[in-house]
Each structure stands twice: as C-alpha cells, then as structure tokens.
C-alpha cells in the first residue's frame, strides 16, 4: 500500500521515481501546490478507492499524514 500511494503521488505530480519518500513534507515539493494536492487526493480516492474527506485532506502536511489516513 505504501509503495502504491507514493507511486500515485509521483505519477500525479509528474515526478521521477524516488522523488517522494514516506518522509516527504508537502511544502518541500514545489510541484505539490494546492492544485497538485487536489489532484493527488483525487487520484488516491479514484485509484485506491480511499475515502479521504476534504477536511482530512486540508490537514495533511506530509506523506506520513496521507499514509496514516490510507491505513498503510
């Protein structure tokens, strides 16, 4: 699951493999702006069948936050 989440983030933001790790902070990635975040959350819900709410999405600051929500 962890790998899948990271892969989807990299694909959605058009980043090379290995750019995102489980320790990445969202603000440190220039491509991960507000539009990028909407697309990442959309892709995770669409592709992994996750159920991330808007409130939860707004409070995510790191990959760790996302993984916690994804139950990975």
């Amino acid at each position: 699951m962890k790998d899948k989440v990271i892969k989807i983030i990299e694909k959605t933001l058009n980043l090379g493999e290995g750019t995102i790790t489980e320790n990445t902070i969202i603000n440190d990635v220039p491509e991960w702006d507000s539009l990028g975040h909407v697309l990442v959350i959309g892709a995770l819900n669409e592709e992994l069948g996750l159920d991330i709410s808007i409130d939860d999405a707004m409070e995510m600051h790191s990959v760790q936050d996302i993984l916690k929500k994804a139950g990975a």
Binding site: T12, S34, L35, V38, L39, I41, G42, A43, N45, E46, E47, I52, I54, A57
Partner: peptide, 12 residues
C-alpha cells in the same frame, strides 16, 4: 473529490 476540493470536475 477534485470537484468539491477544487472545482475540477474531470477525473485524471
């Protein structure tokens, strides 16, 4: 998800 969060209606 993307519609409510950012008014993007279309899926990836």
């Amino acid at each position: 998800t993307t519609w409510y969060m950012g008014r993007i209606p279309y899926s990836q």
